[in-house]
Each structure stands twice: as C-alpha cells, then as structure tokens.
Design a protein around this nucleic acid. Structure first.
Length: 567
RNA sequence: UGGGCCGUCGCCAAGCGGUAAGGCCCCGGAUUUUGAUUCCGGUAUCCCCAGGUUCGAAUCCUGGCGGCCCAGCCA
C-alpha cells in the first residue's frame, strides 16, 4: 500500500458510524436497512439511499443491511412493486442475503405494544373525525387543543382498540393516538395517530387485519425489532425524530434496541422529477411509455436506457452525503456513464441519417475485407471485418456544400478519411433537380491511404461510414431530457405538467443503418457508435432482425458546442 | 417573537482554530484514423453578511440575512 494514496474523506454519517463502532456502541455492530414502501418503482433518489445503506454496512465486518418493505398502507401498495424493487436492488449490485422483511411481519408485536402503551397511559382511543382532528391540531403558530377523549379510562381505550381490531367499527370511527403534547411546537408530537381502521386487503397479510399502524409508529419499532443500529433517512423526517425516540423510550422495557435516526438530504436531479406521485402521473398520463421508459429517472428506466449499475453507484459516490440541498447537474450523471462505457463498450459504426456515396474508383463487384479494432485502447475486445465496396453511406451532416468555419468533414473537392478505411475526395455532388436536395456524392479514393497517411498533404477529418449492401436497417431512438426546464419539480403545479414537457424528448430515427454484425444482439447489449455516442439494444421494442437501439448518452461534443456558441 | 434544518467556486463536496482537497462543468494547449479517449495547464486572497474572541477563524461567540421542511387517520 502506497503512503501517498489519497484517502477519501468520510461523509458525516460514516463519521458517526465509525465513531460509534470505535466506541463499542451497539457492541460494535453495524446494521442498516433500506425501507421502501412498495407503492412505486425505485428511482435514482432511492439509488442514493441504497448505496448509502448497503454501502455503510459493507464497510464493516459483519455489517448487515436489511431490505424492509414499509407496507403499512395497503391502500397504496402492490405486490408488483415488491417484485420490481427486489429486481432493482439486486441489479444495482446489492445483496440483503436472508434479511428481507416486511413491516407487516411485525403487525402482531406492533399491536401488542400498542396495548401496552394504552396500559401505561401513553395512548388513547380517539373519536375525532378527520376534520375535527385537523381543527384540534392547531396551526404552526398556535397550540392545539386536547381531544375530549384524551383522558378516557385506560380500560375503555383498551376495549375499544380490541374491538377496532375485531372489525366492529367502520373506517374513520376511531383512531389510536399517542398521548404526548398538544402544545408542542413540533406538530408531529401533538398526539399523533398511530393506528387507523382500514377495511382493506393487504398484499401480505390479506384479510388478517382491519387496523393498520402508521409510519411513525411502525418504523421505529420495526427498526428496533431488527436490531438496526443506524436508521438513515432523508431530511424531511428530521421533525419525526423526536417521535421516533419518544415511542422507543416508552417501550424501552420491552425493546432492547434503540436505533439512532440520522437524516441526510435527498437527491434533486436537474431536468427530472423524483417523486413517486409525479412519476406516477407521467406514467398514467401516457407522457411516457411506462415506468421503464428510457427517459424516466427510475432504475428500470435507466437500465433500459443503457446505464450500468456501476455507473449509478459511481454517481452516488460522487454526489456525496450531506445535509445541504443535493441539487445535482445532469452532466455529472452523464459523465459517470461515459467513464464506464468508454472503457467497456465495443465500438461499431452506425449511420443515423444516411447519404449515399459512390466510390467511382472502386469496381462494381468489388468487395474487400478490412479489419477494424473493436476498441482503440483495449485490444482484448478484438476486431471485426468491414467491407470495402463501391456504394457506401455516410452521415448526412458529415457533408457540407457550404461548410462553416473549421469544418473538418467532407466538402466538394475536399478530402476526408473514412474511419478504418481510405481517404476519399468528393468529386461530384448530385442533387435532386426538383428539391435541390443532395442525394448522392461521387468520390474517388486514394488506395495508398489504408493504414497510412499521405505524405504530401494533411487530411484532417475522419468520418464514419457503412457499405450500403452490407449494412442493416435499424431504428434508433435518441433522447433529450423529458422536461424543458431544469427544475420541473418546482414548476410543477397541480396536475398540469404538460407545459413542462420537452416535445423533443424522444426522436425516432427509422432510416438508420448499422453494421451487419449488429443485427441480432440480445437486449441490453451496449455499443459505442463511433463519433456519436453509446447505444443499447432496447429490451421492449427490439426483435431479432429488427433491432431498436436507445441512445444512452452522446459522446462529448466540442464541435457541436462550438457551433452552438457561434449561432 | 411556532419548531426543525441548511448556507465553502456555475453544480456537488472536503475542511472539525494554524492560514481553501477533490469531482462535474468551463477555458487554454499537446497527442489522436472517433472534433471521443488520454495528457498537461488554468479557474474561490476567499468560505451568506456584520461585529467580537484569538498571535491566528471557513472553523469559536453574538447579531443579522437568505433558503428548505412540517398543520395526512401518506411514507
């Protein structure tokens, strides 16, 4: 180990954990949990939490991270989401081993503890309805009023709770509330509801229960029952920590563990929304093609787009963990996937928008094999054959009759190199007489330039190409951001988000052509199409012989940037 | 004059009283059969502001200012 190796600084949570371990707190154990509610698909914000929780646990011998479904609201949850969450966490590269749990696993002990809270005078059954409870709660600046049921005899509350469980009452008739302080400046402490009646089928417990614990009540106890040492959550739960601690303190006689809740700031990514409600609205409205639409910031969307687990993990590492607002630019995410794919993606050529070129110096039936390396820096990725023929295609935008300054591609009378092949000169431009559109180029090639540069002149540009007869059609889907504003979350009002949508977020190029060897690739296969970007075989629309590629991300484009600046 | 939290480069983020790490972005330049990659070099005399303590403050104290979260029987 070299002594000049930089040691990455620990974030504030890892500092706390390291400190606790060195002090022997929790017998030196580190147990965390990732606790999603199964009411939607996981997104990039969850990835941050997953990387933190599983990451911290993995950094200690015997460290453990549980996957726990926080399933206390049967109205919003579905088994479908449980499956997708498991898939996504695994795909990201994390392993909960045998530690997969449900908050609903604890419904029985949770209920027992509730009876105990009543017995100890810490909870009561309330008859206020929703509107009344809101009135009694007070406001941010005024204290609340105590419920008239607050001091009902303990035996009566106990009886009522048992009958609530037995299903004797309709929804909303009664609630169980913690007896804390209606004058607390922290609204969460104003006698919060901890059980409500819900005559609903639960995806795990079916019809077993008709009363369900609330998040605040269930979460802390679930943590304690699992022996969690550090309960990591986002900043909006900071105000709930006093309640978390209050409940565990009342139950300290029966619970031997009191986890420490620590909050960090949630991720906000430019040009996206990261709220299940809003993602759901996008899906329902048909603005996107499902939760896994490649424009979605969901894990499944990123996967379909071509993002790799390691790129997402690297992104989470780079954004860090802190309590300051984590407003991250898209360029950071893009740089993570480029860094990964630059090393690992084999190269190939694709012509997105073809322009026919006839090489007049090549005979009609001529077909010569050329060899092209699959990666310029990594010979281990091997090489493939290319075919040199009379009729080829190039990218339309690689030819210009009236080139802008600094244009290094093909111009009338000018030369350019064809990648992995020869230098060609444009001798003639053929246009459609009616429209004036360039329909074909006639070029001659210099046979001395296959693996050598001409000694008498300098050829600056290199463009990609394909032999027309030995290329295949492909559909290429190119994406821009889903929203036309960097802060769609802020500008999102009510349910009208359509004005925020970028009309160009999906462009389908159906006249594109690819190397013939790319015709039958399995879904998810990633290539770099040289000079263009990284592309991935779509898992939904691609079929053998009819490939569909998603553009994961473009290559850095200093030329395009320069053009934009000048226009 | 409700409570909680946060303010270090355009965006993240180290820093924990000894004189501003790093990444992304950006700008130069070199190499290049991807205008990619790689490689060099540049970019905060200053840490929200104002006072104070100290030999010394982004770090401590006081007072301001700005931002975020909370009034679901959601999580």
């Amino acid at each position: 180990m070299s002594n000049n190796e930089e040691v990455a600084p620990l974030d504030f949570i890892r500092q706390i954990v390291a400190n606790d371990v060195s002090e022997g707190k929790h017998q030196g154990r580190v147990v965390t949990r990732f606790p999603p509610e199964p009411n939607g698909f996981l997104h990039i914000g969850h990835a941050k939490s997953i990387c933190l929780n599983f990451g911290v646990a993995s950094e200690y011998p015997g460290g453990q991270c549980n996957l726990r479904f926080d399933d206390t609201n049967p109205l919003k949850e579905e088994d479908l989401y449980i499956q997708s969450i498991r898939t996504d966490v695994k795909w990201l590269g994390f392993d909960w081993q045998e530690h997969m749990y449900y908050a609903s696993d604890y419904f029985e002990p949770l209920y027992k503890f509730a009876e105990r809270l009543i017995e100890d005078g810490h909870a009561f059954v309330c008859e206020l309805n929703v509107e009344q409870m809101r009135e009694y709660r007070g406001t941010l600046t005024e204290a609340g009023k105590e419920s008239p049921w607050r001091n009902r005899p303990m035996a009566e509350s106990l009886d009522l709770l048992r009958r609530m469980r037995a299903g004797e009452f309709p929804e909303g008739r009664y609630t169980l509330r913690a007896k804390i302080d209606m004058a607390s400046p922290n609204i969460n402490m104003r006698d919060p509801v901890i059980y409500r009646i819900l005559h609903a089928h639960h995806h795990q417990t079916a019809g077993q229960w008709c009363i369900y614990p609330t998040y605040d009540y269930a979460h802390c106890i679930s943590d304690a029952l699992e022996g969690i040492t550090h309960s990591l959550c986002t900043l909006e739960f900071e105000d709930h920590r006093p309640l978390y601690d209050w409940i565990l303190d009342r139950l300290s006689g029966v619970l031997s563990c009191h986890p420490q809740q620590i909050e960090f700031s949630r991720l906000v990514l430019e040009y996206t929304v990261v709220s299940k409600r809003k993602l759901n609205a996008l899906v329902r409205s048909g603005a996107v093609d499902g939760w896994d639409d490649p424009r979605m910031p969901t894990i499944s969307g990123l996967r379909r787009r071509g993002y790799t687990p390691s790129a997402i993990r690297e992104f989470c590492r780079r954004i860090g963990i802190s309590k300051t607002p984590n407003n991250v630019e898209l360029s950071l995410l893009e740089s993570c996937i480029r860094d990964d794919l630059e090393q690992h993606a084999p190269r190939a050529m694709a012509v997105l928008n073809p322009l026919k070129v006839v090489i007049t110096t090549v005979a009609e039936e001529h077909c010569a094999e050329l060899s092209a390396a699959n990666h310029p820096q990594n010979p281990a990725l091997g090489s493939r054959k290319l075919y040199w023929m009379r009729e080829i295609i190039i990218e339309r935008e690689d030819f210009a009759e009236n080139p802008p300054k600094q244009f290094k591609r093909l111009v009338p009378g000018g030369e350019v190199r064809l990648r992995h092949a020869y230098v060609i000169r444009c001798d003639e431009v053929i246009k459609d007489p009616a429209s004036g559109e360039v329909v074909e180029l006639r070029c001659s090639h210099d046979p001395a330039t296959l693996h050598a540069n001409p000694s008498d002149r300098k050829v600056k540009g290199v463009i990609h190409w394909l032999p027309l007869a030995r290329s295949c059609p492909a559909e290429i889907r190119s994406y821009e951001t889903l929203f036309n504003t960097a802060n769609p979350d802020e500008e999102w009002q009510g349910d009208d988000f359509t004005r925020l949508l970028n009309p160009n977020s999906l462009q389908i190029l159906s006249a594109s052509r690819i190397e013939e060897g790319l015709q039958n690739l399995p879904p998810g296969t990633i290539y770099q199409f040289e000079r263009q970007g990284y592309f991935c075989v779509d898992s939904k629309y691609s079929s053998p012989g009819k490939p569909v590629f998603n553009r994961t991300v473009g290559l850095r484009d200093s030329w395009g940037k320069q053009q934009n600046k000048e226009s």
